[in-house]
Design a protein around this nucleic acid. Structure first.
Lengths: 155, 155
DNA sequence: TGCATTTCTTAATCTAGGTTATTGGAGAAT
DNA sequence: ATTCTCCAATAACCTAGATTAAGAAATGCA
């Protein structure tokens, strides 16, 4: 049913277009999920450090929208989605819902610099472990814009 | 426990800053949830037509981030959040999660015109019933930009 | 019915962030 | 060491969408 795998930095656990019948629970290390836009540019949807669960929320019958990839060597528990659905407790789902609501609100109503500061405050640990490029991609801007915006802040 | 209320167009059911211990289920009519940014500008988070449920996903102990308001005269069932938590079935939560995932991806990786077309296709009914201003606010752009972008499309 | 408010559109200007290009490091592989 | 690749930062320019303003059509209300 559930199995444990060890993945190396850079390994892709799931690709866009593949069937997405799996849920990934991170025991150690760091994963990310991301999509590609029509220009082939990556947009990070979510980071998953130790203790987090990551999956494409699209119904299991449909092919995945997201890639899931290891940003560090990681130990990952892979669960089939149907099992996850039965076991999943409501509190966890409500928490994920809240995180996404916050994300939508930030994307719509805050400029890049505020999204950056909010990210640093909310995920100080992740911010330490990933490149500026990854942070920019999560914030929805380019690395160049992030560099500019940080620079402008310290006047 | 649950109670039914009739609200008139324009009535506000919940305000940002208030305790958000309630969940609203729409029997008829149309509600929206929105937030205000630092400039006082509104950003629509979600529309809820007949059959939909709307609430602030923030934990019930914290004050609401969102306003909830009737866009049409509506019949609404109001449930306390704790009851909702017990009863809520996983399938419904997973569906809400998927809608939000899609929304984040659209906001990050598609230009305004594509977000507009996606909205029209996905919610043709809602698109018919609300003003251009409301659609623009949901898409994360100004009414002026929406007007421009639609115009550009029909060349 | 008449007046006022709101909605939609167009247009001129402005700006946050994108694009492209260049440079200087910091590892990793040979 | 020396190349190769990736990363971060900077700068010059470009563009999508914001802002401001104004007018026309639709809607609400007295």
């Amino acid at each position: 049913m559930a199995k444990k795998v060890i993945v190396k930095k850079g390994e892709v656990l799931q690709r866009s277009g593949e069937m997405n019948t799996k849920v990934f629970h991170v025991q150690s290390g760091l994963l990310r999920s991301y999509c590609l836009d029509y220009k082939g540019k990556e947009h990070i949807f979510m980071f998953a450090p130790e203790g987090w669960t990551i999956a494409d929320a699209i119904p299991a019958e449909q092919p995945s929208d997201l890639y899931i990839e290891a940003l560090e060597d990681s130990e990952v528990i892979i669960l089939p989605k149907d099992v996850e659905r039965e076991n999943h407790n409501t509190a966890t789902l409500l928490r994920r819902l809240y995180v996404l609501q916050k994300r939508v609100i930030m994307l719509m109503s805050s400029p890049a610099i505020e999204r950056y500061e909010h990210f640093i405050e909310t995920y100080p640990d992740v911010a330490q472990r990933v490149s500026q490029k990854m942070i920019a991609s999560y914030l929805g801007i380019t690395p160049e814009a992030l560099s500019k915006v940080k620079n402008a802040r310290r006047k």
